[in-house]
């Protein structure tokens, strides 16, 4: 019941928040000095042709009117048509979503799988050399410019050592997608040579994307575990001789994760933000790179579409986090 109410409230707030977001980006994107219509129509187009195109795109109407039209369009689930790809923005984004998802999930797995154990270790060795070292490393992880890290990794592992491919998702032309997740597709087709190739392409961007998220996970896990270690049930389990490893890795960790889970939304924000830059560096054909190109081309519909898309995804992730939190902690009593 509590969870249902939670979902309702959150969904109810999502709509006005997105509407506000759309309004902000709408206003910003219309103050452009350059004229995308002229760009689109080409250099040889006459004034009349440009005007015609402008009318066709509805860009001649007053701004509030355009905004209202856009809301109506969104309500119908239509994100408009990209001026440059001339395809529906929804289709563009959907086609590119698997690439971003694959990259983000790989980074998330790396960050969580490494970050949680490291965070626990840092907490257990609090204020000892191991903890200090991990602290420096995690602060450093948050201080690296992701595009620079990407270049350095490319320089070292792709250009110098030639162990890994420089960029792109796959060698040669992309295969016809089944799910769009190349890892899954390769497994489904039983094509393990391709699977290896896909993994090789995934490593550098995923590692780059994972680093700041990893640092964040380490810090939150450390804080959560330290807080949980103070709780009486830890003393009780120790007094009853439950193996120390079990106390830490099963009971303490479970309680600290409740607070760590609330940070997944934040983590996701870091990953999504990182994707825009990192996809551009690695020529990764995801929605981040798409958004960046759209911005460079003043492609209204695509920019708006991406923003709304990101807002919705972000909103859903935060909703899931809240639900997860409610489920993990039945009474709000964990650390």
């Amino acid at each position: 019941m509590r969870i249902a109410a939670l979902i309702l409230v959150r969904v109810a707030w999502l709509a006005p928040t997105l509407a506000g977001l759309v309004a902000i980006v709408f206003v910003i994107s219309r103050v452009i000095p350059s004229d995308p219509v002229a760009l689109l129509a080409g250099e040889t187009a006459s004034r009349a042709q440009i005007e015609l195109l402008r009318q066709k795109l509805g860009l001649d109407r007053p701004l509030p009117r355009q905004l209202l039209d856009y809301y109506g369009q969104l309500a119908r689930g239509d994100l408009g048509t990209s001026l440059f790809t001339t395809r529906a923005v929804w289709d563009d984004l959907s086609a590119r979503l698997p690439a971003t998802m694959e990259l983000t999930i790989a980074a998330m797995i790396l960050a969580v799988a490494l970050g949680i154990p490291l965070g626990v270790v840092a907490a257990l060795y609090r204020n000892r050399p191991t903890d200090h070292a991990l602290r420096v490393v995690s602060v450093a992880g948050l201080a690296l410019a992701s595009f620079w890290l990407a270049l350095m990794l490319q320089l070292f592992f792709a250009m110098d050592l030639r162990w890994l491919p420089l960029q792109a998702r796959i060698t040669g032309f992309p295969p016809p997608p089944i799910t769009g997740f190349y890892v899954i597709d390769a497994v489904l087709e039983g094509n393990f040579k391709r699977l290896g190739d896909v993994f090789a392409h995934l490593i550098l961007p995923a590692v780059t994307l994972a680093i700041p998220a990893l640092a964040t996970v380490v810090r939150f896990t450390r804080a959560g575990v330290l807080e949980t270690l103070q709780r009486p049930f830890v003393t009780y389990q120790r007094a009853m001789g439950i193996p120390a490893g079990l106390i830490v890795w099963k009971y303490v960790l479970r309680n600290s994760l409740v607070s760590t889970v609330t940070q997944i939304g934040l983590l996701f924000g870091i990953l999504l933000a990182g994707a825009v830059v990192i996809e551009t560096v690695f020529q990764w054909p995801g929605i981040g790179a798409y958004a960046f190109e759209a911005i460079l081309h003043s492609d209204y519909a695509a920019v708006m579409g991406f923003t709304v898309y990101a807002g919705v995804v972000f909103g859903i992730v935060n909703l899931i986090v809240d639900i997860l939190h409610a489920v993990l902690d039945p009474r709000g009593t964990a650390a």
Binding site: R231, Y236, G241, Y251
Partner: peptide, 26 residues
């Protein structure tokens, strides 16, 4: 050996705080 054979086995413990001494999530 203390943890394995003595604590919780030959000597057990009843805590002061029965509220906090259970893990709330299990």
């Amino acid at each position: 050996r203390m943890a394995r054979d003595v604590r919780g086995r030959r000597i057990t413990f009843i805590p002061q705080d029965p509220f906090g001494s259970f893990n709330p999530l299990f």
